[in-house]
Design a protein around this nucleic acid. Sequence first.
DNA 1: GTTGTGACGCCCA
DNA 2: CTGGGCGCCACAA
Length: 112
Amino acid sequence: MNTTTPFKNKVIKVVSKIPYGCVASYGQVALYCGAPRAAREVGWTLNRMENVDEVPWWRVVNNTGRITIKGSSFSADMQRILLRAEGLIISEDFTFNIEEYRWKPGTDVMQF
DNA sequence: GTTGTGACGCCCA
DNA sequence: CTGGGCGCCACAA
């Protein structure tokens, strides 16, 4: 690992556990990281994350079922393509039924 | 120690 | 429905 921050480490861990074809909201990820209200931190952390190949950041969206990426190395359009590639149906407005794809964590995740 | 910021979340007009 | 605004937390400078 690199510049270790406990929170960042958990973000990586949680996000990387999101199964194929599912998504989780920033609030969810933050919740599983032990910071229920640090949803903004999740996005901020992912933005400056280097090992993107280990973290399916595109499976993380806001709780409204909408992709709201703001300037990062990747665009919202990129994320939409990636999610579509996993079988999700996403509108041209970058919106979709998050409840239909919402990741429901199991006991294997709550081992922090 | 203080300040600014951010890929959010939620309430209100 | 849309838009505007506040709060929240963790982290970099």
